[in-house]
Structure formats: structure tokens, C-alpha cells
Design a protein around this nucleic acid. Structure first.
Length: 106
DNA sequence: CTAATGACATTTG
DNA sequence: ACAAATGCCATTA
């Protein structure tokens, strides 16, 4: 299985209204290639199915998007995620930890 | 094979 | 808090 396909597979687990990070995805894949994760999502062929817009930077900043960061923000706000000054509001509460089992609590 | 390239992350000034 | 520098690794040329 190619690296990019693993990225898509893990990204699909991020639910509506939550976000995760490139580094977190890499961590879930047991690698440090967070930068390559970004490259993979950039070319994401399963555009709407794989929610690549729910992946942001480790500090809560929006990060990039193939269709433009503005579009990414719009999609996130449609899911109830607020964005201010290019940052996720309440990032710690919206953050989806892919490697933990505690996601269902919040 | 080598080198360049990012939708990044951390550290430093 | 922000910007620059550094390190990073799969992909691509």
C-alpha cells in the first residue's frame, strides 16, 4: 500500500466538526513524515470523500488547501468550526486525536 | 541516483 | 506574538 493511500485512509476517520493535524496523521501512521502527509493531501484524488479540509497545522493555524485556504475555512465553518485570524477557535476542543480511544467522550 | 520541492513542526531571535 | 532558520521525508523531475 502506498504512503498516500495510508494517509487517505487515516484522514477519513476524522469526523465532521472536528479537526486533526498533519503531524497527528503521521504519528498515527508511525512515521515522522508529516511534511509528506501534506504533499499527499495536496494531491488528494478522493476530494469530498476524504475530508482533507479537516487537517490543519499543529498550532491551530489553517494551513494550505488545493482550492485555496479561503475555501477550506468556508467548509470548516459549514461544519460548525469557527475560524478567526486564520486560526481554529478552541483548537484544543476541536482537535481529534487519531491515536487515542478517547475521541468519543467529547 | 541526485536534487529539488512542499497543504509541516520546532526552535530561536 | 511573530518571523526566520532548520530539520524533515515521500514524491517527482
Amino acid at each position: 500500500m502506498k504512503f498516500s493511500e495510508k494517509v487517505y485512509k487515516i484522514t477519513k476517520k476524522i469526523p465532521r466538526g472536528r479537526v486533526s493535524t498533519y503531524g497527528e496523521i503521521a504519528h498515527a501512521l508511525n512515521t515522522k513524515a508529516y511534511r509528506a502527509v501534506g504533499s499527499a493531501l495536496n494531491k488528494n484524488p478522493y476530494a469530498p470523500i476524504v475530508p482533507c479540509h479537516r487537517v490543519v497545522n499543529s498550532d491551530g493555524k489553517i494551513g494550505g488547501f488545493a482550492d485555496g485556504t479561503n475555501k477550506k475555512i468556508k467548509m470548516l465553518e459549514k461544519e460548525g468550526i469557527k475560524v478567526k485570524n486564520n486560526r481554529i477557535v478552541n483548537f484544543d476542543k476541536k482537535f481529534f486525536r487519531l491515536n487515542l480511544i478517547f475521541n468519543y467522550i467529547i
